[in-house]
């Protein structure tokens, strides 16, 4: 008989966590009204949606979506550029490596976390109330959205930069700002570019749905047709959106390969 060492006892995470997670799962399914029986019965009525969905009215979509689609792309471009530009200085303040003041580091970090907790469509709703219905509200909402993501990604990248160049700059007698500019910033610029392209893709996807709350873009057209259950008009719009999103993603992948 071989002598196998005894298995260590499972941690509390497993002995308490797993039963708790299971209980919580059962409770959640109950509370959301999960019922396969009803679902099967409801599925019998799927024709109201699927019939028009698979009979797209292409001519209608071509005539009515072009302008809104351009608007969607414009919202994403402007918001991702402005959002990432604002996030660049903020991330340096929200990183331990470049912000020596413990309190202001904590403030900037908390600010970025707070912006990140509010979902994109909530921002859109708030801005439509504040500055009026239209694409400007959508741009502001996506600026907050890209600011939050870039702030998190970039500040964490700055946390993990190589301290060597910063020490070298400090040893030559440069001030803190000079050190950050000459030895921290160049280290993270390639990451910044990569994140920017990634955020631009996210913004394109997010800007499609902004119109549901009146913040401009192609979602506005989807919303009006959705209320009247015109799925024959929605399905070609969805296809057009998918094609545009995929094309833009390919373009962004191409740029990334060229410059990184």
């Amino acid at each position: 008989m071989i002598n196998i060492p005894k298995k260590p006892p499972p941690s509390y995470l497993v002995t308490i966590g797993i039963p708790f997670a299971m209980l919580f799962t059962v409770f959640s399914f109950q509370r959301v009204g999960f019922n396969l029986q009803d679902f099967r019965e409801n599925l019998a009525n799927r024709a109201i949606v699927t019939d028009p969905l698979f009979n797209p009215k292409w001519s209608w979509a071509w005539e009515n979506t072009a302008d809104a689609m351009v608007e969607t792309v414009q919202i994403a471009i402007l918001a991702s550029i402005v959002g990432c530009a604002l996030a660049l200085p903020l991330s340096f303040y929200a990183s331990r490596a470049t912000n020596l003041n413990k309190y202001s580091y904590f403030l900037y970090k908390s600010f970025l976390n707070l912006v990140r907790t509010i979902p994109d469509l909530f921002w859109a709703m708030l801005f439509t109330v504040a500055v009026g219905i239209g694409p400007f509200a959508g741009v502001l909402a996506l600026i907050m959205f890209s600011l939050a993501i870039m702030g998190k990604l970039l500040s964490e990248t700055i946390d993990s930069i190589d301290p060597g160049p910063m020490e070298a700059a400090k040893a030559t007698g440069s001030t803190h700002n000079q050190t950050v500019f000459t030895s921290a910033l160049p280290q993270v610029l390639p990451n910044f570019t990569a994140y920017f392209l990634y955020i631009f893709e996210l913004c394109i996807r997010a800007s499609v749905i902004l119109g549901l709350v009146g913040a401009g873009g192609v979602g506005r057209i989807i919303e009006t047709q959705r209320i009247f259950l015109r799925f024959d008009r929605i399905s070609p719009i969805i296809v057009i959106i998918l094609v545009v999103v995929i094309l833009i993603e390919q373009f962004s992948v191409w740029i990334r390969r060229r410059i990184l």
């Binding site: 959301v32 019922n35 409801n42 599925l43 799927r46 949606v49 749905i209 549901l212 969805i238």
Partner: peptide, 21 residues
């Protein structure tokens, strides 16, 4: 993955009704 949650949700809405499900 290509379909955002919201688009899936409003396609299901007429079938499964308003609500958490």
């Amino acid at each position: 993955r290509a379909f955002p949650e919201l688009i899936l949700a409003f396609v299901f809405l007429p079938i499964t009704g308003l609500g958490a499900f």
